[in-house]
Design a protein around this nucleic acid. Structure first.
Lengths: 209, 209
DNA sequence: CCCTTCCTCTAACTTTCGTTCTATTGCTCC
DNA sequence: GGAGCAATAGAACGAAAGTTAGAGGAAGGG
């Protein structure tokens, strides 16, 4: 019941170092290693490994695009990023592409072994710095709705019609009030929701984001 | 330059075990330990520790509520959850309350020491299972709405930005094209969707109504 | 090679949106 | 019996949105 692996890493020392160290453990079986994303995309679907250890910076196609392509033909394979990249863009792009683990290259080899097992068992091992980035995004999406002063009855009615895409004039006619009043209500709605226009108000009011 | 700590944990063996083990390291200075959240809420603000190790299940007030209250009066303190709870609700509640680290109690003490240092240095160490939960939420929030067919690739891109409430100018900047072109695309979008304005287009494209 | 589609752009509009200021009425709360 | 708020409204103005007409380049199919 050993865990099958593939490694994609262009630097010879790193690739060989990983291979040699991991091979010491009987829990793992390294099926193959690759120097380029292109080779990996061609071959990994034939191997269907449990886990691919993936670098980001590779000559030609990068590791993130490599994940996208391999994943299509090897859907049960999990990807462990192992890279020096720590900037938000790369991290989030890799995770969106389908990486389930993300370790920085300063991670110890013993820790890497442990993390591979955790990944195999359904966890998402990641360096603390990476996890913090993810947590920050989480906090931003989950942050409690700030004390938005609730809209008045009339303002809610206007908002409903506004969300349908009606013109101010149509809203005015439907509610039997003047356009000037509609403008007033809408202005208040925008103030209370802290937005600048119709679309933002709709998104905010009906939790789209 | 040792890291100051407080521990909130009701079980004597666990609390003492943590205290004794961590005390072996000169990197840490345990200021005090607490058996209940109530005591912690009263005393921790006076201590202003760098980190609080927090259990969730406590007699009386639970650890999550305890974080919320302590955080108000000790804003620079970071919270490391150390608990057996692994269900989504507790995990997310704790993170939302302000925990920056989350370790399950099966974590080794050596690993805990390491994680405390990472937390102090701005990371968010968390058990792989916890990170996976966070990653799952991330993936759900990041998935894009599927493209509306009949619209061209470019028109779909414009529509996505349009739906966020961006100004024409902002859309133009983001796509690196002129405002005039944005107008063209949007005009075509409206034609194809048989609508007259932004809001109707959004409703039609993303089956609101 | 022509035809079509897509993407890009200029230019000159009209219409609608959104802001700001002011003001009246009616209601409630203390 | 003010103080405060919700709803109403007019007026004037700048800022966006949306329309229309025309045109060129790139890509792909018949």
């Amino acid at each position: 019941m050993s865990i099958t692996l593939a490694i994609v890493e262009d630097l010879d020392e790193v690739r060989d170092g990983l291979k040699n160290f991991i091979s010491l453990s009987s829990d793992f079986n390294i099926l193959d290693t690759f120097k380029t994303a292109e080779e990996a995309v061609d071959e990994i679907p034939n191997l269907q490994p449990d886990i691919v250890i993936m670098d980001i910076s590779l000559p030609g196609m990068n590791g993130i695009e490599c994940i996208r392509r391999v994943k299509l033909k090897s859907p049960n394979t999990q990807f462990m990023m192992f890279t020096v990249y720590e900037n938000d863009e790369k991290v989030f792009e890799a995770l969106k592409a389908g990486a389930s683990g993300y370790l920085l290259k300063n991670t110890g080899l013993v820790q890497l072994i442990e993390s591979l097992k955790e990944l195999y068992n359904g966890g998402s091992p990641m360096s603390a710095n990476i996890a913090r980035k993810l947590l920050t995004v989480f906090m931003n999406t989950q942050k409690e709705t700030e004390p938005v002063e609730s809209l008045s009855q009339r303002e809610n009615e206007v908002l409903q019609l506004l969300a349908k895409g009606l013109l101010y004039k149509e809203i005015a006619d439907q509610l039997h009030i003047s356009i000037a009043t509609v403008r007033q209500h809408i202005h208040h709605i925008y103030e209370k929701l802290h937005v600048q226009n119709r679309t933002e108000a709709i998104n905010k009011a009906f939790g789209k984001n």
